[in-house]
Design a protein around this nucleic acid. Structure first.
Lengths: 247, 247
DNA sequence: AAGTGGTCTAGACCACCGA
DNA sequence: CGGTGGTCTAGACCACTTA
């Protein structure tokens, strides 16, 4: 099995060589062979493993990189993507922290363990009644509450957060998930809609009941495609703003 | 100047060969050497012209293709992109025509030539007072008006539309711009926000004054990067829905 | 200096399209 | 069939990072 090893069993007959290799590498990553943030073997090594020329192996890598699955760093190596950039992924939908340079703050209003209601279960892809951690979080700017977040986390996975005082939590949740729970958010889908605030929610935001709000429903997924967080963010509709480029 | 012709004058010193070639090709397209929808020379011809290997030329082409600038069709050739897919680019933001299979209709409510107000001029990137064609268009579904569009078109360019009875207009505007005015929309930017309807606009949509609305402000650009259309679309906020994937 | 990914070459062969 | 773009090879050399 030295030189003519090549593809052992074609995963899909109609697939080009580089696409097959990309699929194989993807599978190996999902199987946990290399974890998020870790380096893959060098191109040379992988090319030898798969019995193809370097250029072909590189095409496979480029494919995976273009899909955001791996990250290639010149002179250092190729790495499994560690997760979404720690950045303020959410606030970008709202005029939040623009200009003044003021620091946004966040506060956990409530935390409770409970069986998943139907809607939450559906979003997380778990069974109704499975245990989840439900959080209510208020994000403020300059002392003004701006965004209300309702977050649901599947529970065996996020048990650590149920046991840690919320005062010790980090401001950025996704890096915290990675460090404390070993959960790496790799992809998220946001659904944007519109509605009005009920009295309880409006009170948190300092608005009148019935005030129009923008609603961003997010589902966050890890590398394996499991939904690991369901989050609904509500904010004043008039402060909502988003830009899309169509090509 | 046969074999060692190569790059005549490097456009940017720090640029790789393929990036330089991509830039050069881009410039030739913008200069009008090949119009939208037309074929570029074959890879072989272009590689010879630039004095590089086919693989390098191909990298340049792949770059341009990934940017949506050209379209490569196996066995046929490489073409300058003709414009945005004729599709219902706009309605995708609204629940509009879902399910029932009913046919959306559109009607031009008003058309008038006028000097550009400041806001319109800013969006189109022209001077205040330059002549524009301003349209008001109502899009309906099942007899129900759903979207109100305010469209501004710079005027020397779209004169044909000022002279053609609106009854003869096509339903899809972008293909019509291409056929009748020689304007190919290649890229568009949408800004999404929420607001409320004033009495006049609400009346067109059959809603009450002050009703919450979603507002999509679009700027459409041609290949050369000129803004050729400024469009504001208003619709019932409760019918608004959009999905974004973050990676 | 050794190891990584990035660029480039000069070919070969294949898959697709149209006359 | 001839011409197009798509895949693949087996090299060479360059640029960047780390130690």
């Amino acid at each position: 099995m030295a030189s003519a090893a090549a593809v052992p069993l074609a995963p899909e007959p109609g697939l080009s060589r580089y696409a097959a290799i990309a699929a194989a590498l993807r599978a190996r990553v999902l199987a946990g062979e290399w974890g998020p943030g870790q380096a893959l073997p060098s191109e040379q090594a992988l090319a030898a493993q798969h019995g193809v020329a370097m250029a072909t192996l590189r095409r496979a890598m480029e494919l995976l990189a273009s899909q955001g699955f791996i990250e290639r760093i010149h002179g250092r190596g190729t790495f499994v993507r560690a997760g979404l950039s720690a950045a303020p992924m959410l606030m970008r939908f709202f005029r939040f922290g623009d200009g003044s340079g003021e620091v946004p703050t966040s506060r956990i209003v409530s935390r409770r363990k409970s069986p998943a209601p139907a809607e939450v279960a559906r979003r997380l892809g778990i069974a109704r009644g499975d245990p989840v951690l439900q959080l209510l979080r208020l994000r403020s700017l300059g002392g003004q509450p701006r965004l209300l977040e309702e977050i649901a986390l599947p529970l065996p996975l996020f048990q650590v957060l149920a046991d840690t005082p919320t005062a010790e939590w980090d401001d950025l949740f996704y890096p915290m998930y990675a460090q404390r729970c070993g959960v790496h958010v790799q992809r998220a889908v946001d659904e944007i809609g519109f509605g009005t605030l009920n009295a309880a929610r409006a009170a948190h935001l300092g608005l009148a009941a019935g005030h129009p709000c923008a609603r961003v429903v997010r589902r966050a997924y890890d590398l394996a495609g499991r939904c690991v967080e369901a989050r609904t963010t509500l904010g004043d509709a008039h402060a909502f703003h988003y830009e899309v480029t169509i090509t």
